[in-house]
């Protein structure tokens, strides 16, 4: 039973982690928290489903198509909503993403309706059963993709030119511009990449939690929490925090109370933050003078 709880927790946690990664990527470079992230990802999942159903595209092509759509959506939002607000206070940008949330959610409801449905593609494999411990293939795929994303982003930041530019833009915009880095281009790229990642995540998650306009909201909130738990600025931290959140929820659900599991998870989050205010792997908070 404990093993199964742990596995289920890790499965849920890797879903949160997938979302947390995109959120942290965006935050690391452009310093923005995007509450519309859940809805942008959801739309991508619907686009993929529409490509499969209406155009009859095979799954991999539809997946790529949706990623491309995501990149364009990210570019569009950055160019026409975020960039013009570069002088506005942070909180205004956060509220702007809340407005995006409402607009995208409402529009998606108009186009696809509010009723849920199954995602038109699923792995036709029975779950693995190792002496009573069940692991679904979806979870294995999500877990691997999460690790893959984390690793490639980590390497990207560390060793590639664009990664260095991203880090530079994140650390000091003015200096980055002086060094000849086109900060705007870096931001555009980050938005495109982060949105595409969110959409990739949503498409992988959709077969598990179904296709529905509100599908990503709960997950985004847990993804935020996971990211903060692990340290908001650290990519490995975001993944570890999210996995931990999933496991805590699962164990609390199994041994304490099945309906108060997120209450316990969030209480623990607050407790951890009180002890270590920047999360588990978060760097020191630097006081600005």
């Amino acid at each position: 039973m404990v093993v199964q709880q742990l596995i289920s927790g890790l499965a849920m946690g890797s879903i949160y982690a997938l979302v947390a990664l995109g959120v942290v990527l965006l935050y690391k470079t452009s310093d923005v928290i995007n509450f519309g992230y859940s809805e942008m990802s959801m739309v991508g999942a619907f686009v993929a489903a529409t490509l499969i159903i209406s155009l009859g595209l095979p799954y991999p092509l539809a997946f790529l198509g949706a990623l491309l759509f995501g990149a364009l959506l990210g570019l569009f939002v950055e160019r026409f909503a975020v960039r013009p607000m570069h002088k506005a206070p942070h909180i205004s940008v956060i509220i702007m993403t809340l407005a995006l949330f409402m607009i995208i959610n409402g529009t998606a409801g108009l186009i696809w309706g509010h009723e849920g449905r199954a995602f038109p593609y699923k792995l036709n494999k029975d779950p693995i059963d190792i002496s009573g411990v069940v692991i679904s293939w979806d979870s294995i795929v999500i877990f691997s993709v999460t690790l893959l994303f984390m690793l490639s982003l980590f390497l990207l930041f560390k060793y590639t030119l664009i990664g260095v530019a991203m880090r530079a833009a994140a650390q000091n915009k003015t200096a980055a511009v002086l060094m000849g880095i086109s900060v705007n281009r870096v931001f555009s790229l980050t938005w495109a990449a982060s949105t595409a990642m969110g959409i990739g995540g949503a498409i992988l998650i959709a077969p598990i939690i179904f296709l529905e306009v509100n599908m990503m909201q709960e997950i985004l909130i847990k993804g935020f929490a996971g990211a903060v738990l692990g340290g908001f600025t650290s990519l490995p931290g975001a993944v570890i925090g999210s996995l931990l959140l999933g496991v805590i929820e699962s164990l609390a659900g199994g041994y304490i109370s099945s309906d108060l599991k997120s209450t316990f998870a969030f209480s623990l989050l607050i407790l951890v933050l009180c002890i270590k205010p920047t999360g588990i792997l978060g760097g020191k908070a630097i006081k600005k003078v």
Binding site: Y27, I33, I221, F224, A225, V228, F232, D259, L260, S262, T263, F266, S267, L269, I270, L273, C274, P277, T278, G279, G282, A285
Partner: peptide, 22 residues
């Protein structure tokens, strides 16, 4: 007191999730 910026944001968000459930 110990939390800043986004950490405080998420901690208070957690508070907002917990209270209705309790």
């Amino acid at each position: 007191l110990r939390l800043h910026g986004h950490y405080l944001a998420i901690a208070t968000l957690g508070f907002g999730v917990i209270v209705p459930q309790i």
